[in-house]
Design a protein around this nucleic acid. Structure first.
Lengths: 243, 243
DNA sequence: CTCAATTTGTTCGTATGTATG
DNA sequence: ACATACATACGAACAAATTGA
């Protein structure tokens, strides 16, 4: 469950899938601008593909203008950071909580240990320990998103049963001892890898939305961190402009 | 420019590209639930591929649960597409206008005639004629979105030069005689087809955001309608929750 | 009921593309 | 760069299910 194969032969060529994984590392900043990528051999070993396949993926990313390669030097992330476009929009916490009401989460796995699987967060500081689990959210029987959740273990212990099997944010919202200071959702666009496609009942390479959800309490602690993958074909974002 | 080939052999199998086109027609409601699709031959002729290739695309969409097929009867859109999830968020018109300031649009083509290329809109009624054009929006030399714009021709005639070569909405916003009643942007997720990939300098099948932008004036006329394709790797949506 | 037309499913041969060692 | 195995795409022919005359 933790060491999964993310690539799988199904219609989408392996090197295209690999390019998606590498693209995601670049756009999320895991491989920041100017960063030197691991060697082709190392990348190939990590994803279980041959060196030629990695080379094809790199060629693709170079054609997209995300990286540049040079014989004998290596492969580097292009300095594209200035041109990324950030849209900022607002939603009321209340309406967001309400939209989660109809949810029907199914737990796929729970980390046995309460180790903090989270490494870094852009804002706030980490809780001493997190409880981590992956769930699929359904609506009328159809999987619609898969979520990797990291919940402050002190909060998890308050009501493990309910927190594991219901939408979490409405529960947090209702807990009098939890005081939410800020919450945001960062949304990017991607393609389904093998585990996501499997859990969502869709196919590799189909469009997905990828969101990171961060909730910070009044003591500046990250109490909830979630990485969500949405089925692109079941999602519509309606931005209403106010005057 | 109007009869373009949307599929092109480049890494992503043709039947996967075709499935994307068909998926989009289903999720946008162009092919509504229960609707019978054209025959495999007709679809193949429209997109310039063989019947076997269309069949493979249909097989893919059936595996995704979007359609069902039956010998001798035909292919139909599955009914359960009603469970699409709509997120509604807000953004101020002012901040949206401001975010368009740094834009540097380049015109790719303009429709010679002022025919209304728009067929249907969900709200408001159509203007007597539209001026249509396709533009690429750049930032520091890199294409980041391509837009098909349909602008009320009466407005276009007021200042053709400027409206063709600058961001339109700030101009509309500043026109005293134009009174905007409502504006919204509908955002979905997809994969780049051949024309989009070509104009955006990316590759077929890379993730893109697809938006429809509708502006209605006080007389309930759709004065501006735009279909936008964003490069997924250059786009981030930041949803801030307010309490 | 039979027949023909329609529509999808299956198979074959060939050429090209993908993935590995 | 090469050899091998498998997938993609095409055209064409044929099989099977459905509909309506």
């Amino acid at each position: 469950m933790l060491e999964e194969t993310f690539l799988h032969r199904d219609a989408i060529p392996l090197f295209v899938q690999l390019a998606s994984k590498m693209r995601r590392r670049i756009v999320t900043g895991e491989w920041p601008p100017g960063h030197q990528l691991p060697t082709l051999e190392q990348i190939g070993e990590e994803f279980g593909v041959s060196r030629v396949t990695v080379r094809q993926a790199a060629e693709r990313l170079e054609r997209e203008g995300l990286i540049w390669r040079h014989r004998g030097k290596g492969t580097f992330v292009h300095d594209h950071s200035t041109l990324r476009r950030n849209f900022v929009v607002n939603a009321t916490w209340r309406s967001f909580i309400q939209s989660l009401e109809g949810m029907d989460p199914a737990v796929l796995w729970v980390s046995e240990t309460a180790d903090p699987l989270v490494s870094s967060v852009p804002e706030g500081h980490l809780a001493p320990a997190y409880r981590s689990f992956r769930r699929v959210h359904c609506r009328e029987g159809t999987a619609y998103s898969v979520t990797d959740i990291h919940l402050d273990d002190r909060i998890y212990q308050k009501d493990p049963e309910r927190l594991l099997n219901s939408a979490i944010l409405p529960i947090l919202d209702a807990m009098p001892e939890v005081e939410i200071a800020s919450a945001r959702q960062e949304f990017t666009i991607g393609a389904a890898d093998y585990p996501a496609a499997r859990d969502l009942g869709t196919l590799i390479g189909t469009p997905v939305g990828e969101a990171t959800n961060v909730v910070v309490d009044r003591s500046d602690t990250v109490i909830y961190l979630a990485n969500i993958v949405f089925r692109g074909d079941l999602l519509r974002l309606d931005i209403q402009f106010t005057f």
